[in-house]
């Protein structure tokens, strides 16, 4: 009996060592590109192409980070990206909760067909609708504004958040709603008082997905934003990566601006990550 417990303890320790060492080695590999980005962002034009490469830049050139803001209104790009991300994320969260609640808790005709359509939108190639959308937004006078990037999100055009929310709501016991109905609550009160507080972690998942998606999107801003004053960070990165003929890009500036662009999302994820896994229910059986 004693032996068995000791044996179990030993195997648990062994397992621990295995997990830590494997995860440690893998994270070194995964972090390497980030490390290399940091290193490069601190180099000078002279040390950029030295061979063998310098692992740690010498001299360290911190002013690369200031140079990013010098000729290009990069601060403006950051502010724009924040604005777009903020409003479209709120839109995604609000609309996907409403829609998911409708799909998860109510019976109506064609519900399954409609939800099937929601899901199939996950597989719709963006290129199929981009031209007509462009023409439509032009007639709405939305070209070169943030509206094409924000307004559709208020109408739950993203299928994945709806799916995540619905699966989570399916996992919440229905008895809670029923008790509330008996207490005289209507559906909106149930959503507000019971469902939303219980699905906080799923909402955070939707927030992370939406922020990542908006923050990183390329094709939509590329097509709809034209004034330099309205550019996003991703477009700013493209601006900085442009080179004159025969020249190679200034990687140190590019890498500095790349880091500037990813830090906010990293912080967001890091601060929310503990809710993250809790918020995803695949089978609809959680809870």
């Amino acid at each position: 009996m004693k032996m068995n417990i000791r044996g179990k303890q030993a195997s648990k320790n062994l397992n621990k060592i295995f997990v830590y060492s494997t995860a440690g080695i893998l994270s070194i590999i995964f972090l390497f590109p980030i490390f290399w980005t940091v290193t490069t962002s601190l180099k000078t034009t002279g040390t950029l192409f030295t061979y063998p490469p310098q692992w740690f830049p010498h001299p360290v050139r911190l002013s690369n980070y200031l140079d990013v803001f010098k000729d290009v209104p990069f601060a403006r790009f950051i502010a724009n990206t924040f604005i777009i991300t903020f409003f479209s994320t709120i839109g995604t969260v609000v609309s996907s909760i409403l829609v998911a609640y409708g799909f998860a808790r109510f019976k109506f005709r064609f519900r399954n067909v409609l939800f099937g359509i929601v899901l199939s939108m996950m597989f719709l190639p963006a290129q199929i609708i981009i031209i007509p959308q462009f023409i439509m937004f032009y007639h709405l006078n939305w070209i070169d504004t943030f509206y094409p990037l924000i307004i559709p999100q208020w109408f739950a055009v993203q299928a994945f958040p709806i799916f995540i929310m619905r699966q989570f709501l399916m996992g919440l016991p229905k008895e809670l709603d029923e008790a509330a109905v008996i207490d005289g609550c209507n559906s909106f009160a149930i959503l507000r008082k019971i469902i939303i507080p219980l699905s906080r972690s799923a909402i955070l998942v939707v927030i992370i997905f939406s922020v990542t998606y908006t923050w990183n999107s390329l094709l939509q801003p590329l097509i709809y934003l034209q004034s330099i004053e309205k550019f996003t960070i991703v477009l700013g990165l493209k601006l900085l990566s442009l080179t004159m003929e025969g020249d190679s890009p200034q990687y140190q500036l590019l890498m500095a601006s790349t880091l500037i662009s990813i830090v906010p999302v990293f912080i967001l994820f890091f601060s929310l990550q503990k809710y993250f896994i809790r918020g995803i229910a695949i089978s609809g059986r959680k809870g």
Partner: peptide, 15 residues
């Protein structure tokens, strides 16, 4: 391990 997936694709390509 999650960090790479929040990196903008343009940034990722450049890196």
């Amino acid at each position: 391990f999650y960090l790479p997936s929040v990196t903008p694709i343009v940034a990722m390509a450049l890196i």
